[in-house]
Amino acid sequence: MNDIHSDETAIEVRDLTVAYGQQPVLWDVDVSVPKGVLLAVLGPNGAGKTTFIKSILDLVPVAGGSIRIHGRPYRRNRSRVAYVPQRGSVDWDFPTHVLDVVEMGTYGRLGWFRRPGAAEREQALKALAQVEMTAYAHRQISQLSGGQQQRVFLARALVQDAEVYLMDEPFQGVDATTERTIVELLKRLRERGKTVVVVHHDLQTVQEYFDHVLLLNGRRIAAGPVAEVFTEENLRATYGGRVAFLSSLLTQRAP
């Protein structure tokens, strides 16, 4: 699987420190994400996983450190990064429909004063097809289930046609169909050489879905290919003592 990866670095994070008021959330984090990998960001609640993603996107003020996307600062490479927020972050009773939300992914490249037209509509429909939501294109967004909401957000990110995708807990509370759709999608993105960073919760599926992991708990515990880094020792360091279940999890994967 590693042969797809080029030597190029998609995301380079150096000495990243983020604090909310007096409280440091991320402390001196160094990570370098190779191009074309599926990376899971793991850690307990409050470990700074969401903050890590948001600081890459310049959505939270960074106290120190530097972040580069394909060698350039995020501000100058914004169009190459797509973001899939937690679906709870918006009001789903907003008066709009699915296709309209997906078309929003084109607003960045449309520029000022231009309205989305036939071309944008077609791109949005294509993205909806990729997440198996074509039938819902004209559905009011308040009528969607959690999994469908998640797929709408994924389609909006796909429409951006970025190089790097940052996803905040896309598997959180979704149904089995959606989970399968997302996994397929992640694989397709990797085949196309895209880099995907996913905040993830379910340790059971890490080895199956991802090829790199970043273990966070305020600071970086470990980062690298799953086979090297996803070890009992590292997980214990990340999650503390509450990992009695981990040893069984890890023995399962022994070849």
Partner: peptide
């Protein structure tokens, strides 16, 4: 937040 990441 999405607006920000889209460059607005």
């Amino acid at each position: 937040e999405a607006a920000h990441t889209l460059g607005l």
